[in-house]
Design a protein around this nucleic acid. Structure first.
Lengths: 236, 236
DNA sequence: CAAGAAATGAGAGCAGTGCTCTTGCTTTTC
DNA sequence: GAAAAGCAAGAGCACTGCTCTCATTTCTTG
């Protein structure tokens, strides 16, 4: 985010204060939830008056948007780091690493997770700045699928791809700039969908009183998804 | 919901007013979202003062909880009705009917859907009254899986089930009182997870600018999930 | 270096919120 | 018919996001 080192003292102070504001806001968010995030409370804790805060964020929603972007990046980074730590050839290890990193982060930061993968709180379309950080886990996953031997993807789950869908897939391919065939792309998308479906269920309490803890069903389902996507469980 | 016909005039009036309140609240919710649902606004529209509303609902959260229960039931009913309309032997037809009913309802009532499958708004654990209506779509799905020939479930996606998970599955089986083996149960759970992962992605805007419309990717993915769960695409 | 411009913080104030409590009134119950 | 319970209204409290004005501080520029 920091474009260049702030020059003047005022600019430095501004950058620091902005960071302090988002940090306290993040703490408040973690404790109470997005609905209870109060500009006034944040300002109070920082020893300033509420109106002063509007010099740094034009509205409450702007503050929330910043938190959303940060959350996307934090989750994305956690996934990328975990994936990097795996041997390149260990596809299933990389897949599991991404899944667990995402899940662990979500469980550790449920409110921030809810902010980005729950219902859109402020009520509207995500600003432009969020779509890039938001696609980091998916990009990771596609990068993984591309290294998979196409022959591995089980034909048993092959479903015909109609023309309009193929067009959308091509556009997506162009976006991520990765040469990958439709079969593997769709397989990856299904795995992606299942992963976040799973995390949603757990974090939003759908597994309460049934799968508690949810560790085992999580592991089981991501392995199933891996197999369905053509990632063999045993590394060769 | 109505346990028995209200006897006294006052009781009848109370029942009617309660219904009117939830209805206007539902309308407001649909227009603006859960965060903007204002008790005072609802009261205003009904020509009463805000404090009078507290005779019918002890708090704003209680009103929201009622809307949540209604939403669960509406979604569940939509799914059940669609599923009932299919030939019993047409498993893939039943699966697709459930999926499309759920998706259509979610798209038609995004805010209500967000209320039940998005982030938990009031901030917490769903009250007891919600867990039963909430499980209707899953129950439907399990009822579908049980009619599937066990041999159909492809071994290619078999993943070992550790002991603790098996225990949780048994408890679940007992709950729904349906004799189904772990393989099919897990296959059904994966399909269930993917379905709502998909709907979440679409309703919460994750497919914007990529899969728009999302009809094709939806159909493709639910068919993939069907195959993975052992439901053949072609009816015999 | 001084003067004008820009950025900043404080305070008051507005319209709105959920919720409580008290005060009269009506309906039901005994 | 009297007592009890249910109900609507109003005032009020402690909040919220946000705007506007007014001093003060900091930066920029002649």
């Amino acid at each position: 985010m920091p474009e260049s080192a702030p020059t003047t003292a005022r600019a430095r102070a501004r950058a620091e204060l902005t960071a302090e504001i988002t940090n306290t806001a993040r703490r408040h968010l973690a404790e109470k939830g997005p609905g209870e995030l109060s500009l006034r409370a944040v300002a109070r804790e920082l020893g300033m008056v509420s109106s002063a805060l509007y010099r740094y964020f034009p509205s409450r929603d702007a503050l929330l948007t910043q938190l959303i972007i940060d959350a996307y990046n934090a989750l994305g980074e956690a996934c990328e780091e975990a994936e990097r730590a795996q041997r390149r050839t260990d596809l299933i290890g990389r897949w599991r690493a991404v899944c667990h990193a995402a899940r662990d982060w979500a469980i550790a930061h449920p409110q921030e997770y809810a902010l980005i993968y729950g219902s859109p709180v402020p009520g509207y379309a995500a600003p432009k700045d969020t779509i890039d950080p938001a696609s980091r886990p998916l990009a990771l996953l596609i990068g993984l699928m591309v290294e998979l031997d196409e022959a591995e993807v089980p034909a048993s789950t092959d479903v015909p791809i109609p023309r309009p869908l193929a067009t959308q897939l091509s556009a997506m391919r162009a976006e991520h700039d990765i040469p990958i065939d439709n079969r593997r792309l769709m397989a990856g998308l299904s795995a992606w969908t299942l992963l976040f479906g799973l995390i949603n269920f757990e974090v939003f309490g759908r597994f309460n009183n049934t799968f508690e803890p949810a560790d085992q069903i999580f592991d089981h389902q991501i392995d199933r998804a891996a197999l369905a996507a053509g990632i063999p469980l045993k590394n060769r």
